[in-house]
Design a protein around this nucleic acid. Structure first.
Lengths: 242, 242
DNA sequence: TCAGTTCATATAGCAACGCTATAGGTGCTA
DNA sequence: TAGCACCTATAGCGTTGCTATATGAACTGA
């Protein structure tokens, strides 16, 4: 019933709390559950963490270290904006992997206690944006860009967490990500996208449609179809909505 | 000590809960506090709302109605994208005015219960974006644009709530707002467009057409023409680039 | 070696919590 | 007036976060 008897009680409490929190689906986790799973009695918790909240803060801090480690993990690609994309995706993935922890970290932020984490997360992203700025790829100050991108990143992740897992559509993330990165960048990562793996499928679809229509050789639509298609388009776009 | 004795107990409970929640700064609010402030005894709460959570859900529902009313309040400017800006600002202001309520509404969303509110908020924004799409001002589908904009809007609002009030810099909001709106809008301010190097006017028109057709008032195309058009569009956008 | 001190854990229990079994009062309709 | 819903209150159950107090283990200095 209890977690490994070998670890010190402090660690066992941390792991028990994290485990129960992850499984709790939002329901409150009691100190009695935690201490029982840790194989420890009540006062031990208060000796080490002072508070229930203190314990949860420690869990959050541990989770945040894991987050930071993940954000630093990959090798820099040499293209700062591409690295920002990876940081974004990594952030989203962290949230989806540990939704309860994420909700505590970013969903419950109140002015009196939490923003230290937010500030650190911002600093992490700002660090990367500084490289982009140095390379002349930014049209706003790195700090503002970092705050803006992180805010959008958090919002997207919360939205995805709110959706039932089977319905989750990660295109929301890639689309918002690319919109934000483009908005702060000085030069559009234009058509010849470097390592074009990162392009959103919306853009791909748009380019595909464009190409199909421009090229009269399209084998998707016959030339007569195309002619009709364009005629309809014209008819409709010349008409006020309604 | 008790709220107006004239209102029915159900209302008094709602108001007491809302008031205590607003003042609580994140600390939990007990049913005993609520019932005492409402001048009512414990079982009354459970008679009307079943649960503590039921009461809080009712508070949230009331808050959401207020939010929706605010989002519909202003007269349409005739420029859909300008209206989207106002919706964004209104959203942020709502969050800053009632941070505790907002955190419950958007900061604690879990897949099992909450997303109804998110879906409604998305629908609200999608409604406005449909007008933009019909006017040919969008380069993505209104639903995707609404989800993306709302996600960023929520993220920004949470970030601003997390900051101590004196330090709040609303430029984070305006900057992110304009970035998102620009990213989904069809008309680049100048030069080349987002990630697009050429989101052609054909694409924009196609999206506009799609929006107009969804509204189904269209007498511009016969229903058979419409069906064919949508089939072509689907064929084309399902085609890999190049 | 051994008292003194500090650290770490346990027993037992308090006040406050969410909630409910039960019953009494009120205003209808017949 | 009887009967019946509806609404509210008294009292109390089990659980919660937390603590007053005590016990054992490990280190310290003389």
């Amino acid at each position: 019933m209890s977690l490994d008897g070998q670890l010190p009680p402090k660690m066992r409490l941390l792991r028990a709390a994290a485990e129960l929190l992850a499984k709790s689906a939002g329901a409150p986790v009691s100190t009695r559950q935690i201490t029982q799973l840790a194989g420890v009695s009540a006062p031990t918790l208060y000796h080490h963490f002072g508070d229930k909240e203190g314990l949860f803060d420690a869990v959050v801090a541990a989770g945040f270290e894991e987050y930071v480690a993940g954000e630093r993990d990959f090798a820099p690609s040499g293209q700062p904006l591409e690295d920002i994309r990876r940081m974004w995706d990594n952030h989203v993935q962290f949230g989806l992997n540990q939704p309860e922890l994420y909700l505590v970290m970013f969903g419950n932020i109140r002015p009196e206690s939490r923003p230290a984490i937010v500030a650190d997360a911002e600093a992490l992203m700002e660090e990367m944006l500084n490289k982009a700025a140095a390379a002349g790829q930014l049209n706003v100050q790195p700090r503002e860009a970092a705050r803006s991108i992180l805010a959008a990143n958090v919002g997207v992740t919360l939205m995805l967490i709110a959706e039932p897992a089977p319905d989750r559509n990660l295109e929301l993330s890639t689309m918002t990500r690319d919109a934000m990165i483009f908005a702060v960048s000085a030069e559009p990562a234009s058509g010849s996208a470097p390592g074009s793996a990162g392009k959103s499928s919306v853009v791909v679809a748009a380019i595909a449609l464009n190409a199909a229509l421009q090229a009269s050789h399209s084998d998707q639509l016959s030339s007569s179809e195309l002619k009709l298609f364009l005629e309809w388009l014209h008819r409709i776009s010349a008409t006020p909505a309604g």
